[in-house]
Amino acid sequence: MWQIFHKLGSPKWFFGISTRFMPWLLVGGIMLLLAGAVWGLAFAPKDYLQGNSYRIIYIHVPAAFLAQSVYIMMASAAIVTLVWRMKLADVFVKAVAPVGLVLTFLALFTGAVWGKPTWGTWWIWDARLTSMLILLFLYGGVIALDRAINDEKSAARAVAVLVLVGVVNIPIIKYSVEWWNTLHQPATFKLTEKPSMPAEMWVPLLLSVLGLYLVFGWLACVRMQTEILSREQRTRWVKEFVMKGRV
């Protein structure tokens, strides 16, 4: 079982498999994301209370959801870096941190623009919004720390520790709306209950969340390949890939 696990950590193996999956991730992701957005914008019924401004949910929730799951994936990779010293895990963390930063920014931005017409304010320092801002700074910190340390191995360990320390923020983001009084409403979707919205509203949301997941997968593959190319330049298989176009 551990042998399979270690095979997963081989950059060459990853390069081959990711190249095969990437077109599907890209096409599927864009199609689902666009389908969700068009459905949500033009065909989903408006909300009885918020009117049409609630249509921002079809990009706000995917961005916020991905921003948090990307961080959880980074934290899992950080454990692999610290315990198994697997290079590919470190490659993943470095490749996706900027993506997570952009997604967190998008969640905050769309949330602010949604908050103005519904709540009456762009920003309020409640627990949900503040913990999400901390997530933005965590992503920024990971990127900065990685750039600040020249030695590849020390950078990998320092970044992994920072990512792990920051992971306590994730349950705080998720449960902030239940533990404390916040302006942000509680979650519409819970694992154990029916969603507090009808199917004609949540199906397009599901599509756009899945679509953004796939687009993220594609982005992660492209960016990891970039990182691997520059790290493994001297290996024979990279030379073969660059000169002949196959792994």
Binding site: L41, N52, R55, I59, P98, V102, L106, F109, T110
Partner: peptide, 21 residues
């Protein structure tokens, strides 16, 4: 009346995503 808010969000979202790709 909510058009500017909704369209601004969608524009920023898709432009940033496309730029990142």
């Amino acid at each position: 009346g909510h058009g500017p808010y909704v369209w601004a969000c969608y524009a920023v979202f898709f432009v940033l995503l496309a730029a990142m790709m």
